[in-house]
Amino acid sequence: MTSFDDQQQPVVEHTENIKCTSCGGNTEYNPESKGLKCPFCGHEMPIEATYNHTVELDFESAGNSRNHLWQEEKRVFQCQNCGAESVLDANVVADFCSFCGSSHISVTEKDAGIQPGLLIPFQISQDQALDKFRVWIKGHFFAPTQLKKTYRLHKISGAYLPYWTYDSHTQSHYVVRVGNYYYETVTRTVYEDGKPKQVTEQVQKIRWHQESGNYREFFDDVLIKASSTVEPKLLQKVQPFQLTSLTDYKLEYMSGFLAERYQTSLQQGFTEAQDVMKNGITRGIERSVAGDIVQVVNLSTDYTNITYKHILLPIWISSFHFNQKVYQFIVNGQTGKVSGNYPLSIMKIVFVSISVLIVLLMVYLFLES
């Protein structure tokens, strides 16, 4: 039967402790009320959302300034099993990794790095995330029937994943190979009932030539994931996040949740962003050059006025056991979209395959009769 495995599950440490003004207990951010709520007395404290940090930061000077580092005293905890690095208060001790459940946690010498300027606060509560998981697991026909009754669900944890966004003006010089269709009339001999017959038809051909030119494009908020902890395919399936909901990073939004330290550096992230921009530039050039076929054969791009933002995006993450195997799943903390791994029933797959073959065979026999 479904249950929480309390003895082996990761303990979610609070990244921030903000005291309740009523009883003095530690409050937690409540996605449903979008404010702080005390789990002891139920007192709620509103959070005023602000939007002062939407300004872009200069990429070139990022490594020479400490103005954008974490201002609060932080420690970085690293999981020796999955490599996840969590940013926690200096006085917090992490017992388990919230990403994989491992107890092999150590304090590293790394600093917390660049503080996020913006985040999307959780809008899906833990209870809502669990409900969405249950609906998701029941909706998979090819999962074993027994799975829906006997899986053991681990403790679900709310975590903010780190991302970079980049803006850049680009100016590119390109060389393209351009093909234009033309048609030639061709007469050929075909045989019908053993007799030759002359057939005239239009045959499509391509005339190629080479062109060069310049192309400019501005890229705004190219989003690059700075975490390697969550399986990329799972994360891709719960996207997109609605970045219009980004608000200023505040301690209150972090209360009761984890913040993962970025594993992709600012410079590495821009290298990935350049690949995204290059693809966009290539598509833009192909659209702007007149021709039936346009192939970019050479491209040289200058990137100027590069800016960035460090943002945090919310997910609920957990896993479940079935037949002594662990399957991870995640829930988008903003939209509630679910993605995860699950076992497949070989019997169901075989049954459906045989059923499809029988139907196809019956259709074939009917058409042949």
Rank of each mutant, 00 (worst) to 15 (best):
C79E: 08
H68A: 00
H68V: 03
N52V: 14
F99Y: 12
E28M: 01
N64Q: 10
E32N: 09
G42Q: 13
G24I: 04
H14M: 01
S65T: 13
L88P: 06
F77C: 00
P46Q: 11
Y29C: 04
E56H: 09
S98F: 02
T27C: 03
V87H: 09
G42E: 08
N17M: 01
T54D: 06
E44T: 15
D58Y: 07
S61C: 02
P39A: 02
C41Y: 06
Y29K: 07
C20R: 02
A84I: 08
D89Y: 03
C100N: 05
C38R: 07
G24R: 08
T50F: 06
L88C: 05
E28P: 00
A94Q: 14
H53G: 05
C20A: 03
A94M: 14
I47D: 06
V76S: 08
S33M: 13
V12T: 14
F99T: 13
E72P: 01
C100W: 02
D95L: 14
R75T: 01
M45D: 15
S102Q: 06
C79M: 04
G25S: 02
E56G: 13
E73I: 02
C38P: 07
D58V: 11
I47G: 08
E72S: 09
D95K: 15
N26G: 06
W70H: 15
T27N: 04
G101H: 06
